[in-house]
Simulated assay, not measured.
Amino acid sequence: MLRPVTTGSPRRRHTHRRPRSRTARIVLAFVAAAAVLVVAALVVPMLLPPGPRPLFQLPVACGETWQLGTYPGHDDYDVDLFPIEGEAWGRPVLAAAAGTVTVAGINGSLGGRTPENPEGPRGRGGGYWVKIDHGGRWETQYLHLLEPPSVREGQRVAQGEQIGRLGSTGNSGAPHLHFEQRRGWEKVETWFDGSPSGITHDDREYTVRRTSNNCG
């Protein structure tokens, strides 16, 4: 026997979604707002113009006279510091201005030049180094230190506070301090005690002597 034929659309099953709870919506809104704040905190400072130049001092002991110089092939505005008198190895390296340490570690590789083996193999890059944020998008960098820095990342340092000792780690031919000042993360001419060093481009060898007023 044939079954009767029915016409019309088949019945569909309806699924009901539970509306999100009020708590879930609040949590999602909070997470989204927090993400926006984090991005703003990272991006906005990069868009602001740099603040006024800090009163940087030579990053060496008060009253000492050092030779500052550059040479062809050295990057623009980079400064190499050598003491005029006395042993170079192990001399204190000081913060040029107050700030917060953002890097304290190894740049490249260390090599093998030490006070006991000054003609050892060169390394790569800056060796032991420190970078300090001085606020207003100003920072300083200190390279070729003798040993691990005496400061740690996140540490607040005062002007004239020792951050390491002079050495020849990394790509260095002799014990000295490679020093940079940066504004908005771009290298600029170094200033010390309110006046420019005169070291700008690396198209020729140039040296100048300056006496430190980094007296704390």
Rank of each mutant, 00 (worst) to 15 (best):
G105T: 11
G99D: 05
Y206G: 03
E161C: 02
D80M: 11
V188C: 03
R204C: 05
A29H: 07
R182L: 09
Q181Y: 09
R209T: 11
G126H: 00
E64L: 02
V60S: 03
E180K: 11
E205Q: 14
Y77H: 15
T211W: 08
T169A: 06
H16V: 10
G108F: 14
M1P: 14
R13Y: 12
R210L: 14
P83G: 12
A33P: 07
R137F: 05
R25W: 14
E64K: 11
A32P: 01
E119C: 01
G90M: 04
R17S: 13
L37N: 03
P92A: 09
E153V: 12
G125C: 04
W185R: 15
S212T: 04
G136R: 01
S21A: 11
L48H: 08
Q141C: 09
P10V: 13
V5S: 11
E180G: 02
K131E: 14
W138T: 02
G90V: 06
L177M: 03
G105Y: 08
E139Q: 13
Y206C: 01
K131S: 12
S172K: 04
Q67A: 13
T211D: 06
L81V: 02
A104W: 09
I132G: 04
P19R: 13
M46K: 09
N107R: 14
R124F: 05
G90A: 07
Y206W: 12
Y71T: 11
G198L: 08
A34E: 09
P175V: 01
C62W: 05
P196Y: 04
F179L: 02
A24C: 08
A29Y: 11
G105L: 09
D202Y: 11
R137E: 03
Q155Y: 08
Q67C: 08
R122T: 07
P149Q: 03
T114V: 02
A96V: 01
A29S: 15
G194E: 01
S195G: 05
L143Y: 12
P83T: 08
G63Y: 01
W191Y: 13
R22S: 14
H176M: 11
L42I: 07
